[in-house]
Amino acid sequence: MGILEVKDVNKRFGGLQALGNVNLSVQENTVHAIIGPNGAGKSTLLNCLIGKLIPDTGSVMFDGQSVLGRLPYEINQMGISRVFQTPEIFGELNVMENMMISCFAKRDGAFRMQAMADMYREKEVVEKAEKMLEDMAMIDKRHDHTASMSRGDKRRLEIAMCLSQEPRLLLLDEPTAGMARADTNNTIDLLKQIKEDRDITIAIIEHDMHVVFSLAERITVLAQGTPLVEDTPDKIKGHPKVQEAYLGEAA
């Protein structure tokens, strides 16, 4: 049993079969990439995992519990964090405040009325946020407003926020999309480091084959809403079906 088990998931938007009988098993403590051409249903699948979309049929189990019918914040509290294609951070707040929000969410759960305490006197939260910023080499940016940061830094902060929640499964949706080569390589190194330092399962959707083959231990190829193959990176590279899905029949 993998930590994430997707069984016979179907999702239809009007006449479009976005996902057709998707089966996927992500093993604990691996990096599992999901690749596929545009419109293959990668993002739809991801959205079904975090409660943004609800599949028409099928089941999604995380650590033996169904995530279907739960709200996004409940799924997150179960231990699934998601990094978005465009970095989703709190744009009007500074780096430290961003970090503290996720640290409070980890400590206090979905809601806690703590209206009279000074947030900077909540020692364990402040220390945890600072520690995470140090680990991510962002501590000198703690007072920066996020609106003026580079995309690479925003991505780094978003990942830091997700990690401070100590998730068991980290979902990454094209984490290097729109990034310069240097930023992309930095992100790859960062993710490798994260994987080395902690017990975490990473599921990653990516277009950039350089990123995929640098990180992934297992790869699932999705085409037209259905998984074509699932295998190790070496086997996927030369797989005829994959070539076909990516390059068309002429290849």
């Binding site: 914040y73 997150n76 964090s81 951070i89 709190f90 707040l93 929000i101 996720s102 809601f111």
Partner: peptide
């Protein structure tokens, strides 16, 4: 302030 800034990120940070 998180609500004002980014409701989506808030939800996917486990906050209601």
């Amino acid at each position: 302030r998180a609500v004002k800034s980014n409701n989506q990120r808030m939800t996917y940070t486990g906050l209601n």
